[in-house]
């Protein structure tokens, strides 16, 4: 099936209906296997079992960043190629990316409690994730403010691109800000080499998270397409009354 076929929302809907159950099933399977492997992974000699929060925390961060990546590609699709599904993809990705970022923040905070003795430390990595979360909130606020999808799509695309350009700069600034104020006693995750007994479950969990992301993303895109159809049908109803 060529990409151009997918431009047709109806085709896309049939495809989603066919793919979604498989995708959801695969997600559940990989999650089950991943959690099994996580349970088998060794405890940290200092942190004990709490280290296992990492298996949620790290994939959460990755997927949070990937969410913005999806939005950036979608933004290019909206602005450059004017692909009819691009805006739908971008809009659907925003709350999901925000949710993964939120998971990363919450787990980071819970992990920090036994490690630092407090729920929150302004450590460079965690702070960068927080800033990403703030950017996501701005994006959600933008979608929330405009009811008309035609009006919000361009604005959201521009904001996504501006964010994509700015994220590295923000990351750099936060790192610099953090080292300026004496680096807090942060435990560096991993270091030079991660043992395979940790790395393999981590990668499996990352795969599970990625599958979950796309399952949710496809479902959200389908919902958004249907929502827009309902909207245009109701507008037609108003016109022909």
């Amino acid at each position: 099936m060529a990409v151009i076929d997918l431009a047709n929302p109806t085709r896309f809907l049939t495809l989603v209906d066919r793919v979604l159950p498989w995708l959801a099933g695969a997600t559940a399977l990989v999650f089950a296997y991943g959690l099994y492997r996580v349970a088998g992974a060794p405890d940290d000699y200092q942190q004990g079992a709490t280290v296992k929060i990492m298996f949620l925390h790290v994939p959460g961060a990755w997927l949070g960043m990937m969410g913005w990546g999806v939005m950036t590609v979608a933004a290019l699709g909206t602005l450059v190629w004017r692909h009819p599904l691009a805006d739908v993809a971008g809009k659907a990705a925003a709350p999901i990316g925000a949710a993964f970022t939120f998971i990363c923040l919450v787990t980071g905070s819970l992990w920090g409690r036994p490690m630092w003795g407090t729920y929150w430390v302004w450590d460079a990595r965690l702070t960068s994730v927080l800033v990403l979360f703030l950017l996501y909130l701005g994006m959600l606020a933008l979608y929330w403010t405009a009811e008309d999808p035609n009006r919000s799509s361009r604005a959201a695309a521009i904001l996504a691109l501006v964010g994509a350009v700015n994220i590295p700069i923000i990351k750099f600034s936060v790192d610099w800000w953090n080292t300026l104020h004496q680096p807090a006693s942060v435990v560096r995750m991993g270091g030079t080499a991660i043992d395979t007994s940790i790395l393999v479950p981590l990668l499996i969990m990352a795969l599970a998270f990625t599958l979950l992301f796309f399952t949710l993303h496809f479902a959200a895109m389908r919902n958004e397409i249907l929502r827009r159809r309902v909207r245009s049908m109701r507008m037609m109803q108003a016109q022909h009354a």
């Binding site: 009811e147 109701r234 507008m235 109803q237 108003a238 016109q239 009354a241």
Partner: peptide, 12 residues
């Protein structure tokens, strides 16, 4: 009457 449930945004 038949437009009662529609958002007023859609009205002309």
């Amino acid at each position: 009457a038949q437009l009662s449930d529609l958002p007023a945004a859609y009205l002309s």
